[in-house]
Amino acid sequence: MTAREEILRRINVALAGATAQPVPRAYRVAGELDRDGRVALFRRRVEDYGGVVLESAAPGETIAAVLAERGARRIGVSPDLDEALLPVGVEVVADDRLTPRQLDALDGALTTCAAACAETGTIALDGGPGQGRRALTLVPDLHVCVVRRDDVVETVPELLARLEASARAGRPIVLVSGPSATSDIELTRVEGVHGPRRLVVVLVDRPPA
């Protein structure tokens, strides 16, 4: 008997007579805030975990200022990032299968996101347009993420509903809530370990088209 058969047999024996009960879902699924309320909450929650949030009418300029302020001269982007978001005055490197070492040599990464969740201050990446692959937002030390105000939902169930199609299509998903952090030494929170040490969210109204 193979291990698979043996384990399934054990499960069958163990569960003889067991029935599946329905799951009560009385918890909150839909939020109640309007768009401004969601964006304001999202902003507070990201800042709470050490992320920086900027509101911008002219994303290209804001992003250029963010990068200049942080001394980032070479930044990586997904090859399909909307050109309207490209900052001037910095070297932009398209991530065309860069090696981990090449990614490590970048000063930062600039991406969009799939959706964001206000209640937890989370941004979700699913490899959609402008988001690039997972390594792009992981290896460089600075992550600048452009979030459309319309893409901010209130609750975790709303966020996961937005991601369901990607999950079914087998696309990898990453949820990011603030910069990387550890509390392993005497429970003192230190922001910035292996993932990006700095997270900047730029809130915009209009698309990347």
Partner: peptide, 9 residues
Amino acid sequence: ERMNPYTSL
């Protein structure tokens, strides 16, 4: 935490 910094799926 309201959400841990990273969730990989």
